[in-house]
Amino acid sequence: MVDAAPLIEFREVAKIYGKGEAEVRALDGASFKIETGEFVAIMGPSGSGKSTAMNLIGCLDSPTSGEYLFHGVPVASLDREQRALLRRNYLGFVFQGYNLLARASALENVELPLIYKGVGRAERKQRALDALSKVGLKGREHHTPSELSGGQQQRVAIARALIGNPDVILADEPTGNLDTKMSREIMDLLCGLNDNEGMTIIMVTHEEDMAEYAHRLIWMVDGKVERDGKPTGGGGKR
């Protein structure tokens, strides 16, 4: 990889759902760059395209037009299976709804990405235990999601995102289902990863409070980037 290229670059990216009269422009020519080590919050009113942008960054969805470069590589040039490899090796996801396997234990959920990486059983288990203790879930390895609180489930999800040593963590409304206290714990955890390990974090949120944890705020309206700079409060929550 040429390090001159930014980690993530959007050039006039558009995503259009439906056709003709029913056409919805979820993203309508959004452009921005994100460098390694940043903690970026993406905000905007509902329907502004912030979640769509996140799904495109995560290669969970494909843009209608425009260009998305990851480490300078145009993602559109990758096929389905290569995009899966990109997710596997460079991206970690944290979702609003946690998206854990309901019938698997915390440990098995965290191990999941390593199975697809072809990591052996013993190493997989050790690394999953380490990741779980890093997010403060030591002793809860064998609980299933239904036996954990929302905050704990989100920690499991963060451990799962971390375990493959990704270049960036993509967090889509990570505190959307949590109360204030739990939200603060999750945000502290993410900030710690950013501060101590230089982990790049991109987070979509609609809560001003949460955006204050980030270095940089991308404000979106109607599928376009309207403002890109410091959070309103200057990122004072850190």
């Binding site: 995560g58 389905r80 899966a84 490899l85 997710r87 998206n99 999941l112 697809y116």
Partner: peptide, 9 residues
């Protein structure tokens, strides 16, 4: 979920 964490189809 499996696809998101990097499983190929």
């Amino acid at each position: 979920i499996r696809l998101a964490v990097g499983a190929q189809s």
